[in-house]
Nucleic acid binder design. Sequence first.
DNA 1: TGACAGGAAAATA
DNA 2: TATTTTCCTGTC
Length: 284
Amino acid sequence: MEKQSTNLQNKIEIRNSFSIRHTLECGQIFRYFKVKNCYYVPYRNSILKLKEEKNYLSYEVYGAFVNSLEILNFIGLNHPVDSINRDLIRRDRRIAPMIEFSRGLRIVKTPPYETVISFIFSIQNSIPVISRKLNLLSEIVGKVIEVDGERFYLFPGSDDLRRLSDKDYSFLKLGYRERYFREFVERFKENDLDCMSGKSFEKKRELLLSINGVGEKVAQCVLLFGFGELSAFPVDVWIRRGLEKYFHVKGTLRKLSEYGRKKFGKFAGYAQEYIYFYVRNDSQ
DNA sequence: TGACAGGAAAATA
DNA sequence: TATTTTCCTGTC
């Protein structure tokens, strides 16, 4: 029996810079629902209602109990961004304006299983399309929680996903990605990925690359957002453009990922997000 | 309405 | 081993 949380309002003090908008709307997370300045975010077996106030983040939890530490961990509020930013600037000053532009962006930590599926859906798709399909999937087999008169769906677990019919699969119109998704659902349960948490970066990367439909870019995304490996450096077309335009480097995806990891070190993932956010929002 | 965007895997050199 | 081609849907 899940412990139901009350909808008492709780607060988390914000010490370093934090922007909920930059954090949730920068493409790391595909499922959040913004109503006025509140964000309803499915997280494991709960819906979190988050609101950024002047010096604190207020939150309400609906569904399974979630404590504030877990929320901190989820939205990267436990990351020492001030020293991360200093370290990145020391490594390459060209990142400074990008940090300024993205101020408050935190790297999230989402469940690995959900993260793999989300990024399989992301292959050659735009963010709105990815969101729509993940929402559709959640509505088909995910559990529902009602908050403020609105129905929100949790991301389905592996048991839920195994109930998907052929018709459900084709309804999602995943194209050639459908096969990758089906194979993943057949082969893995949540725990198969969760139990990799303690393994090395390379071990996790190898496992991820063994999944059909997971290449270098998706693997790095899962390492970064799913496993909290802050040195991961996913390279998509936007990062490729950013690296060419602002850092004057070109190369294969593999090469560029290595370049980013070497240049920016153990917090390369933050550099990657800053570059991504900057390139997508600032440059023409 | 046809061109284009988007990442992985298979095919090719 | 490195480069090119194919796969599929959504958008404008």
